[in-house]
Design a protein around this nucleic acid. Structure first.
Lengths: 182, 182
DNA sequence: GTCTATATACCGATAGAC
DNA sequence: GTCTATCGGTATATAGAC
């Protein structure tokens, strides 16, 4: 038996994500998370040793998954732009909630470990797309393609995932100056 | 004579923007702004009746200018996509600081008047670019082009403005499926 | 116009009973 | 595992002297 109910822990995390999306991370106090679950603030501390640990517990899995997948990508020798863009769309939409959450409270993470990491990801992705010493024009294309994918995932939350995938990847490929994705 | 020194008011606003960019809006306390100007907190309240009014005073001019310019754009009958994208780049780079500031602390404004307004701008721009009842694919292209422009302005802060303009607009036009900008 | 000092409020975190 | 009660810190905002 687990000493602490993993079920309650998960309920807390779900409620936290809900409130973070509704009001922003910074504007959500621990008592609000507790209230939504009809428990009290100290009960939260039984499952998370601090507010920061709670937030990290939401983001850490996404960070680890992205880090690992990115390393895999960099190991592929015959990586095509199409494949990279598709991978980027998939991981964005898979973690849509956390994406939106981090985007809306960027200042919480700038300067932090996560901020450095996310900035690093973008740089590595741009490098993979257009090479390490690309000129400004090529870099801009990559930034537009990658940023556009994030934007579409965040913006068209109601759209059918498969149709959105096709439409977004076509646009991103266009920004890169590629033909339609096969 | 003005009863309150407009010069001091402007100095406060400049210091506020500096600190907001360095640490984020939410993490900047009034005493820090005061400290940077070698005055004290209550002195700030002589010029701004509240923290919120100070923040609004930074953003309001940008909002008004954008609102007016957008209305002008919508009145143009033979508006081309190229022209719209160029206008969007120009207004983004003109207010680069405020842009970055709002982006990094988006959650401060979601739900507020400004949040609704910015969302409305995006919708109106997409409508201008691809029409009111465009399909998902066309809308995605517009979102990628517009979002990409914002991203490039924020991302390449060190680049020469004119070269960045050319590179960014070429990429945005590509996302829209247009030829190179003339 | 600017200061010192303080009122007021909120939040994260902890102590200790049950 | 959850509670009541509270500490400690920090923020906005104000009062009143100069």
């Amino acid at each position: 038996m687990t000493p602490k109910s993993q079920k309650t822990r998960a309920r807390i995390q779900r409620a936290a994500i809900e409130l973070f999306l509704e009001q922003g991370v910074r504007d959500t106090a621990l008592w609000q998370i507790a209230e939504r679950l009809d428990i009290t603030k100290p009960a939260l501390y039984y499952y998370f040793s601090s507010r920061e640990e709670l937030i990290n517990s939401l983001i850490a899995p996404v960070v680890e998954e992205t880090e690992a997948a990115l390393a895999d990508l960099e190991a592929i020798t015959d990586l095509t732009p199409d494949r990279l863009l598709a991978w980027y769309f998939d991981i964005n939409i898979k973690h849509r909630d956390i994406n939106l959450l981090v985007l809306r409270d960027l200042s919480l993470f700038t300067g932090s470990d996560l901020g450095q990491r996310v900035a690093g990801w973008r740089r590595r992705l741009v490098d993979l797309l257009v090479g390490t010493d690309a000129d400004l024009s090529a870099q801009a294309k990559a930034v537009i393609a990658l940023g556009g994918i994030s934007d579409c995932v965040v913006m068209f939350t109601d759209a059918d995932a498969e149709r959105l995938r096709t439409a977004t990847l076509a646009g991103a490929a266009g920004a890169m100056g590629l033909g339609p994705v096969g």
